[in-house]
Design a protein around this nucleic acid. Structure first.
Lengths: 135, 135
DNA sequence: GTCGGTGCAAAGCTTTTGCATCTGC
DNA sequence: GCAGATGCAAAAGCTTTGCACCGAC
């Protein structure tokens, strides 16, 4: 199956890449709709499916119920709040050597890395520590 | 809100910890039901929600549409196939130094690490390379 | 006794899919 | 011209939730 280059697919990729957040399919649909008012939600889903299966975008789960997508397939990391589901980007100083080690072991098979930490986002962490002090 | 120690919650945790795979809520429900025939799917969902929000289990997305759960919160890694969604465990030789670095930067906030690689599982990778040779 | 948990079933939402039509190659 | 893509709308399926009752503390 070869991929056709349709206007819809291009706009979806462009908008996703432009966004710095990690939108759900629905949120991306709203954004794309500003450029292509007649696009359907089904098309967005179908393209996100194809694009992630081809390693061109990243599929992020683990937060809340909805799937999120990330147009940035470069090496970077996430902290997914186990309380509210928000996704924070993490940029550690240097993980290069580890990545190289892993990639050499899995030659050609890795299309993207999403290092997802469960934990508390800043907001939830501070709320919880306040509560702990009170009680 | 303090957590009560109910039979259901205990069995759910125990069974999830025993399983070496990464079951969906529904799969876990089927397993738990052998021990507690009268438990409801809703209870399983509610407990998985509470347990993951407390960092006692790991919530895994990124594969296919359904959420998966992992009772093993020790440091380990996953390769999630971007084609078929299967989850492979990865045990790299040594990532200890990197983890320490990260954890020191995020003191007290991390409850679990799920390093999720998108890529191809062994099966899909070999199928694709066969196809490439044919065409 | 109170507050959280459970079972059941219905509701809610996200995601997928069938079909006719259209577009890229 | 054909295979793949789209729009639309309906269907499917996963997850959540209201309610009455039960159990832990």
């Amino acid at each position: 199956m070869k991929l056709s280059r349709t206007v819809q697919r291009k706009v979806i990729m462009d908008e996703l890449r432009k966004l710095k957040c990690h939108p759900t399919a629905d949120e991306l649909y709203e954004v794309v709709r500003r450029k292509l008012p007649r696009i359907s939600l089904g098309t967005v889903y179908r393209n996100l499916e194809v694009l992630s299966a081809n390693g061109e975008i990243l599929r992020l789960g683990g937060g809340k119920k909805q799937m999120c997508f990330d147009g940035d397939t470069s090496r970077h990391y996430h902290l997914i709040c186990c309380r509210c589901g928000v996704v924070e980007d993490i940029v550690p100083g240097d993980m290069g050597s580890v990545e190289k080690e892993l990639e050499s072991k899995l030659t050609g098979r890795i299309t993207g890395v999403s290092v997802d930490f469960s934990g508390y986002c800043r907001k939830c962490a501070s709320q919880l520590s306040q509560k702990a002090q009170v009680s």
